[in-house]
Design a protein around this nucleic acid. Structure first.
Lengths: 196, 196
DNA sequence: TTTAAGTGAATGAACATTCATTTATATTTG
DNA sequence: CAAATATAAATGAATGTTCATTCACTTAAA
């Protein structure tokens, strides 16, 4: 019996991720992918049931990598300012290290696959975040608010800066480069908003 | 000479907006649109040069509507807290009144058309925002920061709440409905972050 | 009568997926 | 040990569908 070629599988996944990230999900096709990964279109159907299965599998792996990195050195019992900072550093690190994965996940978010992807999402993330928030409120290190308001203030600004960074510019073509200095400056303001 | 049917033009635009907003840009096609708007595919090419032209025209109109509503009753010389509040109320009003337009613009943002759309963007927005920020900093009503950091803290949280609202839920299926109460609660925290 | 709006049926390209083969290799057999 | 066999990987060339766009024509109204 012949064995599956690991390299081939890896090439397919990498090229798929790149095409979606760089050209948009609407211009991703199985035939383009086959050409880019230097395999026959039929080969794709050995590794994946169909196009949707392929994309969802990539979602799953990217999502898991993101969660893994986000919660590195993090514990929900940490002090609020420390825990939030660890997450900012981790999230920024992930986004800068795997920009294609981030862009891929954003593409999925605005496609018909988003619901299916969310269904697959890890529960541990939810538990981690809820208990961190509740601990911090109880200790009076965080103002009393819902997780939605919390998340919107705590992380949306960071992700927005990263969005500018990846576009390379902000409003009207203004050049923009993300840096630790900018991140920490923003972080301090967010902390000011969230601390009692 | 026969005149163009205004109703037809309107139906085409509305259906196009709906299809992109509700089914995603990757499942928008000229033939689907023709069927939905009850015209011949050939008719679309009387009103629009091609598919891209159609989408960009929709972008332009949605973008203009958004700008118009965002800056209603706003003046860059307003006090910081008042000016920001006016913009929050206006932005929320637009998003809740035209959810399809918002979703449409988000879809464009993650498609190949985004660059072309940004090129068309109104300059007055940029000028308005820059002068508002600089005035506020000069008057010491706003901490000294770049427009990118400002925008990320000032508006990303609001748009994130609206994103939750439009999904109808936040993390792990938690039901979520946007309200003025939630908006103002978030606004106050954002203000706390941005005021010296 | 003239003109442009409006059309249904094409066109050819790209799409997802399948099919009939060929190929590589792990295991069995002599 | 080597030759034979079995099996799944891998393929290029289809399949039938949908796509954007065009064309030859009809229709409405100035």
């Amino acid at each position: 019996m012949r064995e599956r070629d690991e390299q081939k599988q890896k090439a397919i996944k990498e090229k798929a991720m790149q095409i979606v990230a760089k050209q948009g999900i609407e211009s991703f096709s199985m035939q383009k992918l086959a050409k880019a990964a230097k395999v026959s279109p039929a080969t794709l159907y050995i590794y994946f049931k169909d196009k949707e299965d392929l994309l969802l599998q990539l979602c799953k792996e990217a999502g898991e990598k993101m969660m893994e990195m986000t919660f590195k050195n993090f514990d929900p019992s940490m002090s609020f300012s420390e825990g939030l900072k660890v997450q900012w550093v981790n999230r920024a690190k992930y986004c800068l290290k795997y920009p294609d994965q981030l862009m891929f996940l954003e593409q999925i978010r605005y496609s018909g696959l988003h619901e299916k992807y969310m269904g697959m999402m890890n529960e541990s993330f939810k538990i981690n975040m809820h208990s961190f928030v509740h601990n911090a409120i109880k200790r009076k290190e965080l103002v009393n608010l819902s997780v939605e308001v919390y998340w919107s203030i705590a992380f949306a600004p960071l992700y927005n800066l990263i969005k500018f960074h990846q576009a390379g510019k902000s409003f009207g073509g203004r050049k923009f480069v993300f840096s630790e200095k900018i991140m920490m400056e923003t972080f301090e303001l967010v902390l000011k908003a969230l601390q009692p």
